[in-house]
Design a protein around this nucleic acid. Structure first.
Lengths: 343, 343
DNA sequence: TAATTCATCCAAAGCGCTTTGATTTGACGT
DNA sequence: ACGTCAAATCAAAGCGCTTTGGATGAATTA
């Protein structure tokens, strides 16, 4: 069923039918109703490719997932972020187009995306500190929004981010207030901007209290469960172990908890733990009382918001580039307590 | 940069340039090289919409994520499955188009997808026992493959599934062999086909040993961490608590472990646990020795395979509909041991 | 030399839609 | 009765590509 046969059915021209369907005023209300009804009856919906070709829009937003050979992990946050973004998209009649790409051919992909024209905009994920994609996309003139900032990029661009440094500074200060002095940081990969900022916040809090950050207590890797386990275990076995751990992901925090439990230690009494909590739907941090004391910010909400911002950019091209900084809540759970007195 | 300007640059017709780019033989090798080179130099890549309109293909596969108002959870498996499928797609030059939809308007969406024509095929996720989507899609004539079977659907359709009943039967028998008689089942939502089959396997094993399944030990819900915690805790507090738990997801198994630990019980000694393990990249089940004894099947591999199967269907439309049953490995970890002697 | 083949290349139609620039129709004022 | 104007409709061009059905020479054959 296409426009031509539909309009023949109706005894109208394609022009009129098209206008009736798209809500133009130059068509009488009576015929509009008639068109809408038969369109529904015949299960007509316009061919997206043809429509896109004619209008120059494709009603889809691209998400590029860079896959490096070294880092095989799928970001556990991906699902919730996608669900959030998808809500905004589907409300606006947009689809989400995902392409996987090896990270060495990423630049080429963006150029291709631009000229293939199958998306109207792009979300940039997990920016690095100096992320070349931002300059590239700016120069391509394809609307984009970055989920996370890139510290060393000076030009203007649209972004949505969480105040990661503030969150980690507050969390660290909270532990310091509880008397902790040996505070470990289990960070994500620090060439990623968010991890860099978290570390900054952590260091700032320590230095603010006259403490020297100890490299032996600062770890950085992909935020898996195993990572939390392995590094916690290693630090507990070393000299002068930490009395508190600041962790970049609830997934890793679960590994931390396992390591503590294996070592016969009680979380919240012997060792305190604070984790960043993305509020993942399948991994909610306890019920009434949170398990982990945490800096919490919903990544699903971030998805919803960032998608909406990008859609707004696309529909109002003249506007200044939007930015949005979300603050993470510091929520108190059962995993923190006063620093134990060392023997 | 479009075909027209490119061909003007080259002093050739659009026909010849198009043929050169698409590898047709009616063009001399010399001009083909010249075309390819200038195309690269000028960063030309064909407009996907126009190409799609001309060829009738869109080089994209649709994934429909049904969102019900009741079940807010994002399937934690989604990311890894997507990554696997994405590998197959990107190798074949396909994109993945995701649309979120309220599950009450799902049927309408499939019709729209068909006539909008922006995908060449569809992956059906999480089929229910009697899944109407399969009949609908068959009648629409849009190639599709179901990730998971639908028990009560009799017609032929393409699917890839894990032998869930076999996996859970084996796991249950393994526990029975260890002397366990009170074995709890923490299942997923049982209107979903995979969960139904798992339960079948569990029941079959019990009945095979002359045991009566106890409804008090069989739970079913979304497979969150909290779910594992809550139900384990409840069962431990009830009369005649289980000595073993069979769990449908490693996420929930972590909740089970937490509940055991809260109750002062040791996993693997006081209570045994077996979990289904999707081999999620951020949640690998231990290193050398697995934490949990598990029935393991990689969902990422399932994604890769199912995408490949669908692509094959699309390129060879005549072939019989492919099906593939993956067997889960039963891997022994530290979470199982002989049934304790009750006081 | 003329006829035939073959390798290259090209003009134009067509994919299904939107949109521009008419054209038709009917109501209205004079 | 006639011209005017707004409302309603339409024909055709154009979006950027593929593909059909030639056209053009050069090389080969008779």
């Amino acid at each position: 069923m296409n426009l031509k046969t539909l309009s023949e059915h109706l005894g109208l021209s394609q022009t009129t039918v098209s206008r009736a369907l798209n809500g133009y005023p130059e068509v009488s209300e009576k015929t509009r109703q008639r068109v809408l009804e038969t369109a529904r009856k015949l299960n007509y919906s316009p061919n997206a490719r043809a429509k896109g070709l004619a209008t120059g829009k494709s009603m889809a937003i691209g998400h590029v997932i860079a896959r490096s050979s070294r880092h095989e992990m799928v970001n556990p946050v991906f699902g919730d972020y996608t669900a959030g973004a998808g809500e905004s998209y589907s409300a606006a009649g947009y689809d989400m187009l995902i392409s996987l790409v090896d990270d060495d051919s990423e630049e080429q992909l963006y150029r291709a995306i631009k000229s293939k024209g199958n998306v109207d905009g792009i979300i940039v994920h997990s920016p690095k500190m100096q992320d070349t994609r931002i300059d590239l996309l700016s120069s391509l003139g394809l609307p984009f929004l970055s989920h996370g900032r890139a510290s060393n990029v000076t030009r203007n661009y649209a972004w949505l981010d969480v105040n990661n440094s503030r969150a980690f500074q507050r969390a660290t200060e909270f532990l310091l207030d509880l008397g902790h002095r040996r505070i470990a940081l289990l960070n994500g990969l620090e060439f990623l901007d968010f991890a860099h900022r978290r570390r900054q916040g952590y260091v700032r809090a320590l230095v603010g209290r006259g403490l020297e950050p100890d490299p032996a207590l600062m770890r950085s890797d992909e935020m898996t469960e195993i990572y939390g386990y392995r590094e916690t275990r290693a630090m507990l076995e070393a000299d002068d172990p930490p009395t508190a751990v600041l962790c970049s992901s609830i997934i890793s925090a679960i590994g931390v908890r396992r390591a503590l439990s294996d070592a016969g230690l009680t979380m919240g009494r012997d060792v305190s733990v604070i984790t960043y909590d993305d509020d993942l739907s399948y991994m909610s941090n306890g019920q009434e009382v949170p398990i982990f004391t945490a800096t919490r910010s919903s990544v699903r909400e971030a998805g919803r918001l960032s998608a909406q911002m990008l859609l707004d950019m696309i529909s109002n091209p003249g506007m200044p580039l939007p930015t949005h900084l979300m603050e993470a809540d510091l929520i108190i759970g059962q995993s923190t307590g006063p620093a134990p007195n060392r023997p």
